[in-house]
Amino acid sequence: MKSNNKNQEIKIKNSKTKFNPTIDEISAKKLKLKPVGYPFKFSLMENIPLEISNEKLFEDYAKEQWLGIELKKESYLFDQKMIPDYAFKILEVEPNNSILTTETKITVDTALNTVSEKIEPKNFNIKFKDIVGQENAKNKVRIIERYVKSPEKFGQWAPQNILFYGLPGTGKTMLVKALANNLNVPLYLVKATSLIGDHVGDGARQIHELYENANKNAPSIIFIDEIDAIALHRQFQSLRGDVSEIVNSLLTELDGINPNTGVVTIGATNNINFLDLAVRSRFEEEIEFKLPTDKERKEILENNIKTLPLNVNINIDKIVKLTKGMSGRDLKQKILKTSLHHALCEEKDEIDMDDIHYALEQSKKKVKNEVKNMYE
């Protein structure tokens, strides 16, 4: 990018010709930059954030190549040495339209480049009656209801950390949504994988901010789904990467070292035996979610069939027998939804057993492929 250097030389000449004052009058006193990446999309390196480990060293490096450049707020400076064409946006310059000199103080706003998205509380319209089965789990979470309504009765014995476990699609997330809706309290819904940031410290910061916000809005519920993604048992740690600082931050919050009065943490995992024992021990109660029985599968099918946009001509009792071992989500997504799409593709006015059999076959193929991929 030689043309950039030439343009920079022209700017210096023009600025000196245009202003021609003393160096003190045109010298920039302060300059604040933000790394923003490459102007072109041409490689796997695009949009990789820049980490400044030594700001004083970076300041000397910047002055070496940009000395004499005219600085204007909202314009850009391009690196031409170590990472050619990497752009830095000028966030602040004092005074504006001044020249970078050896006296200019340079800072880099890397926070804007690395801060993770703030986790906000959500509201849902799901009710307990919408959840078929899981009566044991429903009864167990009643203690959380009593605590939120009458915290003074519990004192230091308040329920704080509860663990949901069971196969995918059995209603763990639905139950916590119904619980928050029933209590009319904020629900902080978090996927554990979203806590793993691009830089060391991102996840830990998110966890502390999460609990700080939950405390401000207490009583509230924090739901960390797929918690095993960051808290795998030590024998699987090599698979998870370096997330130790995230786990340590989570343990600090679960231990109550920072008082989280009125905040209930609910973790969820599909594989409870994969959890790190240090994390698992912080949950005072473990609540299992089981696959639906024949009776419950029939009720799930009947409830969801009512919402289908086509007429339905099927044998529900037969489907119940054919779907043994499937979760509620499987019945809705893999069977009914696939059947609907098949009927629509065939330009039919109703869903029949041919569509159901098609969905069952597709489901079996998917399971076979998943098992095959596990061993390849």
Rank of each mutant, 00 (worst) to 15 (best):
S75V: 15
E70C: 07
E117Q: 15
F58G: 01
E74N: 12
A111L: 14
A111F: 12
K122N: 07
N97L: 15
K122M: 03
F42M: 09
V93N: 07
L91H: 06
D109T: 06
N47H: 11
T102A: 11
L112Q: 13
E55M: 08
F88Q: 05
I83W: 08
Y38N: 01
I90K: 00
E55G: 04
N96E: 07
L91F: 06
I99F: 02
K41S: 15
E64V: 08
I90E: 01
T102Y: 11
K122S: 08
V93T: 13
T107E: 08
A87Q: 06
V108Y: 02
E51Q: 13
V108R: 04
N96S: 05
I48H: 13
Y86M: 05
D85R: 08
N113K: 04
E103K: 13
P95L: 09
A62T: 05
T114Q: 13
N96L: 04
T110G: 11
E94Y: 08
K105G: 02
E74M: 09
A111D: 14
F88P: 01
P49N: 04
T104E: 08
D109N: 06
T101M: 11
M82F: 14
N123L: 11
T104A: 05
A87F: 00
S43I: 06
I69A: 10
Q65P: 00
N97K: 15
E74R: 09
K73W: 05
F40Y: 15
K72N: 08
L44I: 13
Y86L: 10
P39K: 09
Q80D: 05
K105H: 10
Y76Q: 06
I52N: 09
F58T: 04
E103G: 06
N113A: 14
A87L: 04
L67K: 04
T114R: 15
S75K: 15
Y76H: 10
V108H: 03
T114M: 11
A111Y: 11
